[in-house]
Amino acid sequence: MGTAPASRDVTSYGMGLAAPLALFFLLFFVAPLLQLFWLSLHNDTAGLHWGLGQYLHFLTDPFSLGVLGSTLLLGAEVTAVCLVLGFPIAWLYQRVGPKLQTIIILIVLLPLLTSVVVRTFAWIVILGRQGIINATLQSLGIIDTPLKLLYTQFGVVIALAQVQMPLMTLPLITALGRIEPNLDDASCSLGAGSWRTFFRVVLPLSLPGVIAGCTLTYAAAITAFITLSLVGGGQMLFMPMYLYQQASTLQNWPFAAAISIIFLLAVLAVVSVFTTLGRLSRGHGGA
């Protein structure tokens, strides 16, 4: 109790400084979100009837649920690819000299340094019917007819994984860097081989980074509108495009608003599963 006034002072000081940003968020994030929610509560486009009709429609429509399901699944696939490819990169980073570290960081950050649109068109050039991959495989005589890579789930996952890779690799690099290097040696001197050391020591201790990376990658992957639309094309419909169609093309604003809210809640649910896992792992040792 004796220290309460001092700590309250500190808190009120901090709150005052946060006010401009809080106001900004209130105006440009919370207010539109509330407006969106209000919009979603209309049963017709004219806005005459109130109710949960839009939500009922979405949740009973197999097509809509299918789009939601495939979007969430796509996120899981991209996250898995990023984790499997990103972990070795992060592991390597912690074991090479400073020169190579700079090069690795540069390669990891490269996707962030080019525009999403340019990057995505590059993937179209690579994956297309007459693209680099098909041309190479054909000239080597490995395939006769071009493979269908673009506008497929495979193509979307690969393109998204490349774009989101930094979000996975950077937290992993940080987490692996925090592990006491002697622990590797200790494990080895106690008779454990490299695999046992990896699964018993390195992986559990890097779990906070794994979870942070997965959360970021997942959230970014399923909301990547441009990549999803361009590489996915017309045949593959994911939530961001579905939403866009309803709002812009069909002018069905209440339904689009309901889709947004449902999508938002679904993403929040997945992210909170990740963070809960993170808390559990920290509770069991962690740093």
Partner: peptide, 21 residues
């Protein structure tokens, strides 16, 4: 022989205990 086959016990200066176990 690699370290894990030498049967040499080591105590490190910072103890290097596994923090999660």
């Amino acid at each position: 022989l690699p370290p894990n086959r030498r049967a040499v016990g080591i105590v490190f200066q910072n103890y290097a205990l596994f923090p999660h176990l």
